[in-house]
Simulated scan of single mutants.
Amino acid sequence: MDMNCDTLQAQLAMLLRDQPRGVTADLTDFAVAYWDGDQVAGVYLRDNGHLDEAFELDGTGFQHWHDEIAAWLANPCYTARPELLERRKERPPFEARV
């Protein structure tokens, strides 16, 4: 299945929007994606599986992660991460971040 980045981004966003808050798409064993209320966002995982540094899943990010996202779409795997909910509580709402 050969998909362009726009298609991957749209499919991943559609699937993540339907998930409860705090659920991630486990793209690899070291990177996950989640719906931040406005767009798909990425986060690296530390060795012990805890959330680490965020990364952009914009057009360039989707090009970089194309193969991983395409593989994930073929066999989606999600994880509920309470840590993500806590992290998001610390951030202001999207409108305030503008």
Rank of each mutant, 00 (worst) to 15 (best):
Y44M: 15
D26P: 01
L45I: 02
D29S: 13
W65F: 09
R17H: 08
R88G: 03
L16Q: 06
D18R: 13
Q9N: 13
A80R: 15
L12K: 00
D58E: 13
N75Y: 07
G22A: 09
A31D: 06
V98I: 12
P20R: 07
T28A: 00
Y44C: 10
E56S: 13
A96W: 05
P20V: 09
R46A: 05
N75G: 06
R97K: 09
V23Y: 06
R87I: 00
D29M: 03
A41T: 13
L15M: 14
L85Y: 05
R91K: 14
A10D: 11
P82Y: 09
W72E: 04
D47P: 11
L51A: 12
A31S: 15
N48A: 09
R81C: 08
Q9H: 13
A54G: 10
R97H: 07
W72T: 03
T24F: 01
A33P: 03
R46H: 13
L15C: 07
G49P: 02
H64N: 06
L16F: 08
L45V: 02
D38Q: 14
L51T: 04
A41F: 07
D58T: 05
Y78I: 04
D2A: 07
A96G: 05
W65Q: 02
E68M: 07
D38M: 13
P20M: 04
C5Q: 11
Q9R: 15
R87V: 03
A70E: 15
L8R: 03
L12A: 03
G37F: 12
L85V: 15
C5P: 09
Y78W: 15
A71F: 05
R46I: 00
N48G: 06
D52G: 10
E53V: 08
D2M: 05
R97Q: 15
L57E: 06
L57K: 04
T60E: 12
D36C: 15
E53P: 01
T28K: 03
E90N: 13
R88T: 10
E56I: 05
P92T: 08
E68A: 14
G61V: 04
A10I: 04
A71E: 10
P82K: 11
Q63F: 09
T24D: 07
H64Q: 04
T60Y: 14
A96F: 10
D58Y: 02
V32C: 09
L45A: 00
M3T: 10
G59I: 10
T7C: 08
E68W: 03
A70H: 09
V23C: 10
G49D: 06
G59E: 14
D29G: 05
M3S: 10
A25C: 07
M3Q: 14
R87L: 09
A70R: 05
P93A: 11
C5D: 12
E83C: 04
T60D: 13
L51N: 07
T60L: 14
N48W: 11
L57T: 02
F55Y: 13
A74I: 02
W72L: 03
D2R: 11
L45T: 00
C77S: 14
I69A: 01
D67T: 13
M1Q: 11
A31N: 04
L51Y: 06
D38H: 14
R81A: 07
F55M: 06
G22F: 01
